[in-house]
Amino acid sequence: MASQGSFKYVAGRLAKIPQAVLALTLIGLICLVAIASALQLPLSPYAYDQTSTLYLAGPSAQHWMGTDELGRDLCARVIYGAQLSIAIGLTTAGVAFVIGTVYGAIAGYCGGKIDTLMMRGVDLAYSLPDLLVMILIGVLIGRGTFGILLALGLVSWMGTARLTRAQFLQLKNEEFVEAARAQGQDHLSIIWKHLFPNALGPIIVALTFTVPSAILSESTLSFIGLGLSPPACSWGTLASDGWRSLRAHPHLIFFPSLFIFATVLSFNFLGDGLRDALDPRTRLSKLK
């Protein structure tokens, strides 16, 4: 049982789940593309902000995904967009995970007055208008990519906190926790060894949602005019720039959406796989 949390153990179990392997491969590929484009390797014959006189051309042999209203190759932009989309998704999930689980774990484990007080704190953080917080962070840190990453992270930890706390409240009365307490284990090891691994399932699933929802939030930010600074672009900004062309130039919205879809799907399968791998009670052989 002691080794169940170890990386090797989880990875070994994960490798037995085909969907998860597939998802991981896909995510790995997208991340590779993102890293390569960050290193400015020429993945496409066109630079991402290179314009041509071919305005709004549909997909063709030259331009696989067509061109946009400034005559830029959409494929090059989607490749470039991978970098920011992945960064946005992972950072936001990371910030939400760290702040959210720690906060929620404390509230859920302590319970009583501390819990009540901390949950009112979550209410407070929830009630502050996201938009104001984001504009403010934009002003304080600058409207660069980093500002948006931080802003999205800072407005999305509350869900994770509430979820963690609910899990802890439910779990801390289970027999195995009572048993551990009876054995005289200290609070930290109870939280770390018993509560946390058992609460992790739904939290990870929720996190596999934070990644896509951050990617989407960023596209909504672009929709209301608070997105990234061009020519920087992400799949979200590409989708929000192209959605009015749904009828006239569907390729502008189709390709970015396709990549968002593939990424989200992969993260879902990965989340599922992780949950199974983390849970020692799952018999992997029984899964298809």
């Binding site: 504009i135 934009g138 409207r143 005019g225 600074s229 020519p231």
Partner: peptide, 9 residues
């Protein structure tokens, strides 16, 4: 370098 700001800012 393009720098965008929210309208009122």
């Amino acid at each position: 370098n393009l720098v965008n700001q929210e309208w009122k800012v």
